[in-house]
């Protein structure tokens, strides 16, 4: 009896120790999130001034802002999203609505999921070979193309996930009214899945707005104001990377400011997207 009790006590001790460790693991995860955000706020807030949004990237030692980099990033993100989103939605539609589990559909979904996690630097190398080498110089278009390629798998994935959730009865009801298939997809299925698809697009934008590595090979950066998409244009991630690695305190401060700007944008996009998704699911 005493032996049994001792054994029971040991099992309980082990249980609590390990569950305590799992609590610690969660604490570690949250700690790092907090630590990163804290450093960003402490170092970055001092750089957030009106001039950050109105002046160009400076020469070392002089004052300036990140206007050209912000502009370049916004333009390329828009290009990437505008090009990548329709493609992603169409691919998702093929997988969910047309292939309905055939081999080709499965293959496309499989490859899409691999692309979703594939290193972005490889995509950068691909676009470098595809566009930069033939054109002979880095360009904003090449950057936009890279970002579009990164957007497609994210949008495809969420589109498939959302379209699969649309009840078949809706499609059948529409078909019974004589609606052609394309119209069922666009007017019924897309509408039912709208919220989830929007979430996917926002997550895709969040993902590409911080991408750095592939842009190093495709747009590089530019010290000056430029709106010419045929040449290198400044963009936040690459400017942040260059400035952070520079020995000049002014540049490093701007890098922290830019980093804070990007992170806030991405966190807002992420949180909005996720609460949108949960709002949608709680309504159903």
């Amino acid at each position: 009896m005493a032996k049994d009790l001792a054994r029971y006590a040991r099992r309980r001790r082990k249980n609590w120790t390990i569950l305590g460790l799992s609590l610690c693991a969660t604490g570690v995860g949250l700690f790092f999130l907090g630590a990163i955000l804290y450093s960003l706020l402490v170092e970055g807030l001092s750089a957030i001034r009106p001039s950050l949004f109105t002046e160009m990237t400076p020469a070392p030692g002089s004052d300036g802002g990140l206007l050209n980099a912000i502009y370049g990033s916004v333009v390329m993100t828009i290009v990437g999203t505008v090009v990548g989103t329709p493609i992603g939605i169409l691919v998702g539609t093929y997988i969910a609505e047309y292939s309905r589990g055939n081999k080709l559909g499965q293959a496309i979904q499989f490859i899409n999921d691999v692309l979703l996690s594939a290193p972005s630097i490889i995509v950068g190398l691909f676009v470098y070979q595809l566009l930069v080498v033939p054109m002979g110089h880095f360009s904003g278009w090449a950057g936009g193309t890279t970002l579009a390629i990164l957007v497609v798998p994210v949008v495809t994935r969420t589109t498939v996930d959302m379209l699969v959730l649309v009840p078949n009865a809706l499609r059948e009801a529409a078909a019974a009214l004589g609606t052609p298939k394309w119209k069922i997809t666009v007017s019924v299925c897309y509408r039912a899945a709208r919220q989830g698809m929007l979430t996917g697009i926002m997550l895709a934008v969040a993902r590409i707005s911080g991408e750095t590595a592939p842009l190093l090979f495709t747009v590089l950066s530019n010290q000056f104001w430029s709106t010419d998409m045929n040449h290198s244009i400044a963009n936040l991630p690459v400017v942040i990377s260059n400035f952070a690695l520079s020995p000049y305190p002014d540049w490093q401060r701007l890098a922290w400011g830019g980093a804070l700007l990007i992170t806030i944008t991405i966190l807002i996009l992420n949180i909005t997207a996720r609460s949108l998704a949960s709002f949608g699911s709680s309504k159903q």
Partner: peptide, 8 residues
């Protein structure tokens, strides 16, 4: 944590 970009 997954949303924070690599460069940050």
């Amino acid at each position: 944590l997954a949303g924070i970009p690599s460069i940050i």
